[in-house]
């Protein structure tokens, strides 16, 4: 893949996906508070990291193995708001799981989004495996696994990085470090400041990037992808970011972090700051912005209506897909 330039079109597209994700996310919380969606996991605050990273990939061709916080990532990767809402509401047509998994357990083969479970860090080894196949098949694809900093304590994080580095696999490990694993702060998770410091133990590059700046994330991911495609092996990227909402709709984060801390991070809200930047740098006019926001609003409304009207799964399908059909 030729190195894509940061054209105005690309910048607008990045913003579009970030804003769309935020709008879908906000709507999910409303549906939850209305009692229409039992649980919500958010990407709120992580949009710059998620969108910036996958825009540097060959979307739909390269593989991504996201985790539950990656709403913005899968939207930027081609999962539509309708599909997201079908999943949230557990409808039969949910392409991620036919209503079988909890919301935010992504998986869409059509777009090369690997299916994921709830046990954290299993996706790291899966990404290494996807990349192993790419190496053997010489299909030129890169795989990207994303994960929170908490899951880096899992043995599989280590096993995946070790395996991928020994075999020089085309894989990118993207850590979305938001400082909290549910309620556990990073300092209780690891005895180091930066997850990226672990890269040294595998002889691979470890890159720290401002996770609230989509351009910076885009650039480091692009570099990692090029390195992977050259056959030089994996890269560990640590994007420092923050989640603006509790872990899930069942969590209350007031118990473990101060409102001042949240407010401080919100000053650097990635959607707001990127919007301002595009206007300030005249990439987009106010009118264009308004039009895009209206389009997003329509899309979210459409997706909600569509999913709410969609049928629930037939109980007779309970026994299906235990084995190949």
């Amino acid at each position: 893949m030729a190195k894509a330039k940061l054209t105005p079109e690309l910048l607008k597209e990045i913003y579009y996906y970030m804003a769309l994700s935020r709008a879908v996310d906000d709507r999910m919380w409303i549906l939850n508070r209305q009692g229409r969606a039992p649980v919500v996991y958010s990407s709120n605050g992580h949009e710059a990291t998620q969108v910036g990273a996958v825009m540097a990939l060959n979307r739909g061709e390269d593989w991504i193995v996201p985790y539950y916080r990656d709403l913005a990532m899968v939207i930027a990767y081609g999962e539509t708001p309708r599909e997201i809402m079908l999943h949230l509401l557990g409808r039969a047509a949910d392409p991620n799981s036919g209503g079988r998994q909890m919301p935010a357990h992504w998986g869409l083969k059509r777009r090369h989004i690997m299916t994921t479970g709830s046990v954290v860090a299993t996706q790291d080894v899966h990404a290494a495996g996807l990349a192993l196949a790419s190496k053997v098949l010489k299909d030129g694809r890169v795989s990207l696994a994303s994960f929170g900093e908490g899951s880096t304590s899992q043995g599989e994080f280590h096993e995946a990085l070790n395996f991928a580095s020994v075999h020089k696999l085309p894989v990118i490990f993207l850590n979305e470090n938001n400082g909290y694993a549910i309620s556990v702060p990073a300092r209780k998770q690891m005895a180091i400041m930066d997850v990226a410091a672990r890269a040294q133990g595998y002889g691979i590059p470890g890159v720290i990037v401002d996770g609230n700046d989509p351009i910076k994330v885009y650039e480091v991911t692009q570099e990692a992808a090029e390195r992977a495609r050259r056959g030089e092996g994996p890269t560990l990227i640590e994007a420092k970011t923050y989640r603006f909402v509790p872990h899930s709709s069942d969590d209350d984060d007031r118990a473990y972090r101060s409102r001042e801390e949240v407010a401080e991070w919100k000053k650097r809200d990635p959607v707001m700051t990127f919007e301002k930047r595009l206007i300030d740098e005249k990439v987009m006019t106010e009118d264009e912005l308004k039009a895009m926001q209206q389009r997003i609003k329509n899309e979210v409304n459409d997706a909600t209506d569509f999913a709410e009207k969609a049928p629930l799964p037939d109980p007779n399908t309970l026994g299906r897909y235990v084995y190949a059909e």
């Binding site: 193995v65 690997m114 899966h126 495996g129 996807l130 192993l132 694809r141 995946a160």
Partner: peptide, 22 residues
């Protein structure tokens, strides 16, 4: 091929490889 000594990684990567066409 010989893999590192890590069973979770052996099976976990095999799952990924199977999904990706091997």
């Amino acid at each position: 091929m010989d893999s590192p000594l890590a069973e979770a990684a052996i099976i976990g990567t095999a799952i990924g490889a199977a999904v990706n066409g091997l």
